[in-house]
Computed example of a mutant assay.
Amino acid sequence: MTTEKLFKVNGVELWAETFGDAADPAVLLIHGASASMLWWETAFCAKLAARGRYVIRYDQRDTGRSTTYPVGEPPYAMSDLAADAIGLLDALGVERAHVVAQSMSGGTGLHLGVDHASRVASLTFVSTTTGDDELPPPSDDFPRFSTPDFGDSAAVEEYVVRAIEAESAGVFDEAAARVLVRSDIARATNFEASLTNHYAMKFDGPQGGGFGELTMPVLVVHGSRDPVFPLAHGQALRDAVPGGKLVVIEGAGHGIPEPLWEPFLAALVEQTDAR
């Protein structure tokens, strides 16, 4: 069963959708910067739920239908986004969840794992980084895009589609990307804020330490061809976590596209066995 609902959490409104049976192990999916819950595709969530998981996806602040703020003026920090995730679990009656955090939201996952460890059954980092200065920069051929005219919806769509293509490292379905982007634009309260505000928030760190303080099982999933955070970032993240495990998705770029879902789903199912 699938349901989408508005939750009032920490003084903000968050839209969330659940898949599967609430009696199954809960998996909280947190996508990266600017991405609404639609970026955890419905078919992916349904496949994970069909394997015995209670799947939760949601719009973080400044994405989708959730609370949004003036462009360039987000009054929150990454720790607030982590507190939102805990508030959402509270609202759903979930005591502990397996957290899956992608790209920039790896920082949110770190906050959850360190400062809210009792609520995190396991932690999976997807296409993310420790942020260490000595790690390699984005690929030399990764394009730099000019900010689009937000008054021109076609230009905005093209901007995001081309960004998806650049991150895909060759595994790219343009028709599917356009459907996603159009749906996201149509659904967003303020799409310009969605593309802007996560980069302008305060990036604070957990109060209780860093990656070395994580005590729950930690899985790192990384594409072999990630042009944003080359594979060395995933390897460094694995090494930074006590007992960390790395699964490399061959052929994947920054994120895991549908043709490569199967090894990702298999890894998640193994990681999120009831604990």
Rank of each mutant, 00 (worst) to 15 (best):
residue 100 V to S: 03
residue 141 D to A: 13
residue 211 F to H: 15
residue 87 G to D: 13
residue 48 L to R: 01
residue 104 M to C: 03
residue 177 A to M: 14
residue 172 F to I: 08
residue 252 A to C: 08
residue 38 L to F: 10
residue 237 L to T: 04
residue 179 V to Y: 06
residue 161 V to T: 10
residue 238 R to K: 10
residue 126 V to G: 03
residue 224 S to G: 11
residue 26 A to P: 03
residue 107 G to R: 12
residue 208 G to A: 15
residue 220 V to G: 00
residue 193 A to R: 02
residue 25 P to E: 06
residue 28 L to W: 07
residue 115 D to G: 08
residue 102 Q to A: 15
residue 72 G to E: 13
residue 53 R to A: 01
residue 179 V to C: 02
residue 134 E to P: 00
residue 87 G to F: 11
residue 263 P to R: 09
residue 134 E to G: 11
residue 265 L to C: 07
residue 97 A to Q: 05
residue 218 V to E: 02
residue 15 W to I: 03
residue 133 D to Y: 11
residue 2 T to A: 11
residue 156 V to N: 01
residue 103 S to V: 04
residue 173 D to R: 05
residue 68 T to W: 08
residue 271 Q to Y: 13
residue 95 E to D: 15
residue 86 I to K: 12
residue 78 M to R: 14
residue 231 L to S: 00
residue 270 E to Q: 13
residue 220 V to N: 09
residue 100 V to M: 05
residue 198 H to P: 00
residue 236 A to G: 02
residue 81 L to E: 00
residue 177 A to N: 13
residue 220 V to I: 14
residue 257 P to G: 06
residue 202 K to I: 14
residue 177 A to V: 14
residue 93 G to Y: 07
residue 88 L to S: 01
residue 133 D to R: 12
residue 167 E to F: 07
residue 97 A to K: 01
residue 235 Q to A: 15
residue 197 N to S: 04
residue 138 P to R: 06
residue 16 A to V: 06
residue 55 V to I: 14
residue 235 Q to F: 08
residue 152 D to K: 09
residue 131 G to N: 04
residue 93 G to L: 05
residue 159 Y to H: 14
residue 84 D to P: 01
residue 194 S to L: 09
residue 248 V to M: 06
residue 105 S to T: 11
residue 68 T to C: 13
residue 137 P to G: 13
residue 160 V to S: 01
residue 190 N to F: 04
residue 266 A to V: 09
residue 102 Q to G: 08
residue 3 T to R: 10
residue 65 R to Y: 08
residue 73 E to P: 01
residue 94 V to G: 00
residue 62 D to H: 06
residue 187 R to G: 00
residue 245 K to F: 02
residue 108 T to H: 05
residue 196 T to W: 01
residue 85 A to Q: 05
residue 192 E to H: 10
residue 10 N to H: 08
residue 75 P to K: 14
residue 191 F to T: 03
residue 128 T to L: 04
residue 86 I to E: 02
residue 203 F to D: 06
residue 11 G to W: 07
residue 153 S to L: 12
residue 30 I to R: 00
residue 241 V to M: 14
residue 244 G to H: 11
residue 68 T to F: 10
residue 200 A to F: 11
residue 210 G to Q: 11
residue 142 F to I: 00
residue 26 A to Y: 05
residue 217 P to H: 08
residue 134 E to W: 12
residue 43 A to G: 13
residue 216 M to V: 15
residue 22 A to E: 14
